[in-house]
């Protein structure tokens, strides 16, 4: 019995909790991608760098707040700085829309042109982030480190295995929960949200019913910029901030959006968790886990790891391809690109 409990704790500690946190971060990112896709109708390659851009401002403001001694211990100071980062991300999104995307929208350019344009925006943001904060890892987390500590958990339960819940992980899950609820409420109940859904569903009919397209687009960018900053900040607190990593997040985020059904907000959230848990479960070494469960003579000698952690991109990719081949609309019947 104790063996099973130990195995469960071990599994929660190394798979369940990290997977939940990572999945939440991907879900927030994928929500932004899916929203831009459903309103502006293109896959935004600059989203990873938008995340990096917003997070960079959060970091800069956090450092400034730390230097003048303002904080909300035990919570990380970055939460105080979050609104400023969101404002910066929204500002640059709106600027890029005004000076770049709007031209092509009015010309009714094909989606591929939008994607190439978003690559240009990606270069710009990528360069800006590296010029301003540099290409290296940045630390900006402070406050308490753990909600549950390994030692305390062991003492309280008397088990061999400890459970650790980092504050950043708890925060990620809680914030994602709140944000997703708020976003769904907005999309389902509010007037603007309904207008956005109508616009996404059928542009002509929405225009005919008096939906203001400029407003819809602006709101879409505001939400996408905010979500990107929140996702980026949570990822940075949980792991670390490095511009290149954020660029690379693009792939799992796209995978999440497509797996769930692109253009479908619920799908983006579910897709985020599907991709995250696939990555974590496939790259986890099950040796210790199995030792607790199987009789001694069956104990595995190898690590029992399906793929080494360096190949986690392959997991997102394989999911992506399988979904595209088997069910191109995704789990929740989104649009086909």
């Amino acid at each position: 019995m104790e063996g099973i409990l130990n195995a469960v704790v071990l599994f929660s500690n190394f798979v369940l909790i990290p997977g939940m946190a990572y999945g939440s971060q991907l879900a927030l990112g994928a929500l932004g991608v899916t929203l831009i896709y459903s309103i502006l109708r293109f896959a935004n390659f600059a989203h990873g760098d938008l995340m990096a851009f917003g997070t960079m401002f959060v970091i800069l403001i956090t450092w400034w707040l730390q230097s003048i001694g303002v904080g909300i211990d035990p919570l990380p100071t970055a939460l105080l700085a979050l609104p400023f980062g969101m404002a910066a991300a929204i500002a640059i999104s709106l600027l890029s829309d005004r000076f770049v995307y709007r031209f092509y929208r009015r010309n009714k350019s094909p989606a591929v042109i939008f994607v190439i344009v978003s690559i240009g925006v990606m270069f710009l943001m990528n360069g800006l982030v590296r010029v301003i904060i540099g290409p290296n890892d940045q630390e900006f987390g402070d406050g308490a480190r753990f909600l549950i500590k390994v030692r305390e958990f062991k003492e309280a339960t008397g088990l061999n295995e400890g459970l650790a819940l980092k504050l950043s992980q708890g925060l990620t899950i809680a914030v994602t929960f709140v944000v997703v609820i708020a976003l769904f409420w907005f999309l389902q109940k509010s007037r603007t949200g309904k207008a956005m859904r109508a616009y996404s569903d059928n542009e002509d009919l929405a225009l005919l019913s008096g939906v203001n397209p400029d407003k819809v687009v602006i709101v879409a960018w505001v939400i996408a910029g905010s979500l990107a900053t929140i996702a980026g900040t949570l990822y940075g607190l949980d792991k670390s901030f490095k511009p290149f990593t954020y660029f690379q997040l693009l792939l799992p985020i796209f995978a999440a959006a497509i797996v769930g059904g692109i253009g479908h907000p619920v799908g983006a959230v579910v897709g985020g968790y599907v991709v995250a848990f696939s990555e974590v479960t496939v790259t986890y070494a099950y040796k210790k886990f199995l030792i607790y469960l199987v009789p001694e003579s069956w104990e595995p000698e190898s690590l029992v790891q399906l793929l080494s952690t360096e190949y986690k991109f392959a997991v997102s990719f394989v999911i992506l391809v399988v979904v595209l081949l088997v069910r191109p609309t995704g789990i929740f019947k989104g649009k086909v690109l």
Binding site: A43, V115, L251, I258, S316, L320, P328
Partner: peptide, 11 residues
Amino acid sequence: RADYLAIATLG
């Protein structure tokens, strides 16, 4: 389609 091919080749 084009966008998906882009994402797939990136991966």
